[in-house]
Computed example of a mutant assay.
Amino acid sequence: MVRNVIGSILALVGAAAAVWSPFRAWYDGRHGRDYRIADLFSGISGTKADLWISILLPFAFAALVTLVGLLLRSRLLVVLAGLIVLGFTILWMIRQGQAAGSLSVESDGSGLGPGVALAAGGGVLLLLAAVLMSGRRRAHEHDLDEVGPGHTWGRGHGRRRRGRGEPERHEEPYAGPGQPYEQRPYADDTRTAEYPRYDDRPGEPGPGPAGPDRPGPPHRG
C-alpha cells in the first residue's frame, strides 16, 4: 500500500514535469512547444509549430497513459509512459545535435534549456514510480487469509473466509473411545463420511466397512 502511494506520487510529478517542459526553453531560448513533431523525424527546422502538433502532444499522451495506469494500478502502463517521454526527448536531442552540430549547456542560455531537463527528469521519475509500485494483486491472492477464528479451508483458492451468517465451528480434539459422536472432529462434515460410524465401546469394532471379520453395529429396536 505504501509503495503504491509513493509510486503514484512520483508518477504524477513525472507526468506533470513532462507536460510542463514544452513551455520552457529547450535550446537557445526556443521553447519546446515551437518544435513540430514532424521535425523530430525529418530534421529540425525554423518553422514554428502550432501547440497541438508540437512536441507537447506525445507528452500529453504520456500523461494520459500515466493516469490510466494509476487508476488500473498497472506498472506496465506507467513504464510505457516513461518510455514515451524519454524516447521523444532523446530523439529531439539527436535531431537538435545534428542541426546545431553539438549540444552544450551555456550560462547565457544559448545552449540546452531547462525544458530538456524537465522532460528527461519526468521520464526517469515515471520509470522509478513503476519500479516502486507493487501493482495489482492477482485474483487468487485475495482469497488467502490468515488462519484464525472463523476461517476454514476452501477448495481451489487456498483458505476461505467464513461467510456472513455461517455459524462458527469450534472443533474438539478426539478424546478416544466413549466420546459422543457429536463431539468428534468433523462429525457433521460429509467429506469424511466414507465409512459408517460406530460407537467405540469396549468389545465392539471401530469405524470401517462391515464384513465377515468386521460386523456392523448391533440392531437397536
Rank of each mutant, 00 (worst) to 15 (best):
residue 8 S to M: 14
residue 28 D to T: 01
residue 200 D to H: 11
residue 53 I to R: 10
residue 203 G to N: 13
residue 95 R to T: 00
residue 103 L to C: 08
residue 11 A to F: 10
residue 16 A to N: 08
residue 148 G to Y: 07
residue 113 G to Y: 04
residue 72 L to K: 02
residue 197 R to C: 08
residue 74 S to L: 02
residue 8 S to P: 10
residue 89 T to Q: 04
residue 205 P to L: 11
residue 120 A to D: 00
residue 96 Q to K: 00
residue 51 L to M: 10
residue 44 I to E: 00
residue 137 R to L: 10
residue 16 A to V: 12
residue 66 T to F: 04
residue 113 G to I: 05
residue 161 R to A: 10
residue 58 P to E: 11
residue 171 E to A: 10
residue 139 A to M: 07
residue 161 R to P: 14
residue 173 P to E: 12
residue 63 A to N: 09
residue 161 R to M: 10
residue 173 P to G: 15
residue 185 P to A: 11
residue 100 A to C: 03
residue 58 P to I: 09
residue 154 G to C: 15
residue 214 R to G: 11
residue 211 G to Q: 10
residue 191 R to W: 14
residue 78 V to N: 01
residue 87 G to W: 02
residue 219 H to T: 15
residue 174 Y to S: 12
residue 195 Y to W: 13
residue 157 H to N: 13
residue 81 A to D: 02
residue 31 H to P: 07
residue 73 R to W: 06
residue 151 H to I: 13
residue 25 A to Y: 03
residue 68 V to D: 01
residue 104 S to Y: 11
residue 128 L to D: 02
residue 7 G to T: 07
residue 181 Y to Q: 15
residue 27 Y to R: 00
residue 62 A to R: 04
residue 160 R to K: 14
residue 117 A to E: 01
residue 14 G to P: 06
residue 155 R to H: 12
residue 12 L to M: 14
residue 202 P to H: 15
residue 168 E to T: 14
residue 174 Y to L: 12
residue 66 T to W: 06
residue 192 T to P: 07
residue 183 Q to P: 08
residue 107 S to K: 15
residue 92 W to E: 02
residue 122 G to I: 01
residue 13 V to M: 13
residue 73 R to K: 13
residue 136 R to L: 02
residue 98 Q to R: 00
residue 59 F to G: 06
residue 101 G to I: 05
residue 8 S to E: 11
residue 84 I to V: 15
residue 131 V to I: 04
residue 206 G to H: 09
residue 20 W to S: 13
residue 116 V to Y: 01
residue 55 I to F: 03
